[in-house]
């Protein structure tokens, strides 16, 4: 078989000067270090694929609840399976919602800390932990949660415009990476990275989720924001040259992903494809890591990436 050079002889493109994106370790993987947009050059499509480990299955669509084990769901057991199917990292969303005027119960905090400690013992894979909690709760929460994570390995967020200082302080105290999130806007994404940086967090230690829109619910905004962040980094903008994460589990916040029969087809078959294509959209735009929720969506994307990176003779 002829080589790429032989195939394209006489029809090559001038090689553009590009600043490589930052090379960062996520567990065993070395991510980043890109010198071109995905599939614009012959180097492999480098992306870490993680599985989301939920503390409980409350509030999920029935299709997903059943798929994840239903009443028999045990986070630790599920995490074990995620490790078994080759997840590159575990994504752990922890949500703390309380009514105004109330305070967090110590049970809730202990439950979360317990889960994180158990996960840290279960596997060497990096954990990316996403706290959803109002700013006023962070003082109580952050020390406990950060203390349960492993310095030099795990990541904690989500640091936003109004909370980045608190997260930056915790990340420094416990040597954690920071998961940052901005609302689908390139300027706000860049600004948040700069703010974190000026609060002592190196760009290598930031993984930025520019907010993932599910298919049909803003995936095109995510696609363009990531492309612009990547192009900016390749043109030499250090503030956007760190890791980018997409959370394709967001696909499930649109009801067309999983609802009813009808013109959209069998929801059991459609939903994992819906999520997988949300993931693909982010990966082709230039995301370095993708957290998936549905195990079949994970399997689809993993296989697609494997095939893309396979040598021609293994492909068939």
């Amino acid at each position: 078989m002829p080589s790429w050079e032989e195939i394209t002889e006489g029809y090559t493109l001038p090689s553009a000067e590009a600043t490589p994106t930052l090379e960062v370790a996520l567990g065993e993987l070395r991510l980043g270090g890109r010198t071109a947009m995905p599939l614009f050059e012959s180097s492999p499509l480098k992306v870490a694929l993680g599985l989301t480990v939920l503390p409980h299955l409350g509030g999920l669509p029935p299709t997903l609840t059943v798929e994840l084990g239903g009443e028999n769901y045990v986070p630790l057991k599920y995490a074990q399976e995620a490790v078994g199917v080759g997840a590159d990292f575990l994504f752990v969303p922890l949500s703390f919602e309380i009514e105004e005027g109330e305070s967090l119960s110590s049970n809730e905090i202990e439950g979360a800390v317990g889960l994180l400690s158990e996960l840290a013992q279960l596997t060497d894979l990096p954990l990316i932990v996403e706290l959803s909690a109002e700013k006023r709760l962070l003082d109580t929460l952050l020390n406990a949660v950060a203390g349960a994570l492993r310095g030099g390995k795990d990541w904690l967020g989500r640091a936003e415009e109004d909370t980045y200082r608190t997260y930056a302080a915790a990340a420094q105290a416990y040597d954690l990476g920071v998961l940052a999130q901005s609302p689908m806007d390139i300027n706000l994404a860049k600004q948040l990275n700069i703010l974190l940086h000026s609060n002592g967090i190196h760009y290598e230690r930031i993984i930025h989720d520019p907010l993932t829109g599910g298919l049909g619910y803003g995936a095109q905004y995510t696609f363009s924001v990531i492309e612009r962040l990547r192009l900016g980094a390749l043109a030499g903008d250090e503030a956007t040259s760190g890791l980018i994460l997409v959370n394709s589990g967001e696909a499930w916040s649109g009801r067309e992903c999983y609802s009813g029969q009808g013109p959209l087809g069998d929801p059991e078959k459609r939903a994992p494809l819906w999520e997988a294509q949300t993931a693909i959209c982010g990966i082709v735009a230039g995301a370095d890591a993708c957290a998936l929720l549905h195990p079949q969506a994970f399997a689809y994307v993993r296989e697609a990436v494997r095939e893309i990176n396979a040598e021609p003779e293994e492909a068939v």
Binding site: L215, P263, L264, G265, D266, P267, R270, L273, W274, Q277
Partner: peptide
């Protein structure tokens, strides 16, 4: 259609 619909939306 279950394989087609996500593709059309994308």
């Amino acid at each position: 259609v279950s394989a087609l619909s996500p593709l059309m939306v994308l």
